[in-house]
Every structure is written in structure tokens, then in C-alpha cells.
Design a protein around this nucleic acid. Structure first.
Length: 105
DNA sequence: CACCTGACCATCG
DNA sequence: CCGATGGCCAGGT
């Protein structure tokens, strides 16, 4: 429970640091954690986060500006985002130029 | 060690 | 805009 979990720890910290009403992507998180190739691992970490977590995992979306999950999780995240003032386009997309916490490029 | 999986990403048609 | 394809790479079996 050290170096290997260190990455997950950073991911948690980064997620917790996302401001309200903003969103970010998996790739960005991986990069901020210092491991740009760990984008799939970010996914694994998020998957391990229960809905009860204090972490705003609903602010994590993919590079297309869409919620990456489906089903109930999708609905819950979308509602939470709307509550925070995030606006979805007609294609259920989020404008990164407005709500992107930090631009992926 | 080999194979499969994945809440991704970029590119192409 | 949507779907398919390839690339990426750690983890699990």
C-alpha cells in the first residue's frame, strides 16, 4: 500500500480538487497525476469509488465532453452536474470551453 | 509468461 | 454526428 496506491491517492486528491460546476477528463487527471499513460487506470480507480464517496466522481467525463458511464450512474451524474450549474448541449455534451476545469491539450 | 479486459483517446470514413 | 479501428498500458486470471 505504497507506491502502487500512490497513483490512486493522487487521483483522489485531484478529483477532490475539481471546483463545483466544472468538469475534467480522465486523460487530464492521469496527466496531472504525472502518469499520462495511466488513463485506463484512472478508469479503474473511478470504478472502485462507491456512489457514497465524498469525491465528485460525477465531474469526470471523457474527452468528448460526455459522461462516460451509462445507466443509473449516468443519470445520477448528469443530475448532479445540472444542479451545480453545468449545462448540457443537445447531444448531452458539455462545453469544455466553459466548464472544463483544465483543457486536455 | 500469454491472453483478456477496460467509467480512454485520436483518427478516419 | 455516429460508428469502427488502432493504440495505449496496467491488472487480473
Amino acid at each position: 500500500m505504497e507506491q502502487t496506491d500512490d497513483f490512486a491517492h493522487q487521483v483522489y486528491a485531484i478529483i477532490a480538487a475539481i471546483p463545483e460546476g466544472k468538469v475534467t477528463t480522465y486523460g487530464t487527471i492521469a496527466r496531472l497525476a504525472g502518469l499520462p499513460t495511466y488513463v485506463r487506470q484512472v478508469c479503474a480507480v473511478l470504478r472502485g469509488i462507491p456512489s457514497d464517496s465524498i469525491l465528485p466522481c460525477h465531474r469526470i467525463i471523457n474527452g468528448q465532453g460526455k459522461i462516460t458511464v451509462t445507466g443509473e450512474t449516468y443519470q445520477r451524474h448528469k443530475k448532479a452536474l445540472l444542479k451545480e450549474g453545468v449545462v448540457f448541449n443537445k447531444n448531452d455534451k458539455i462545453d469544455f470551453k466553459v466548464f472544463g476545469w483544465n483543457y486536455p491539450y
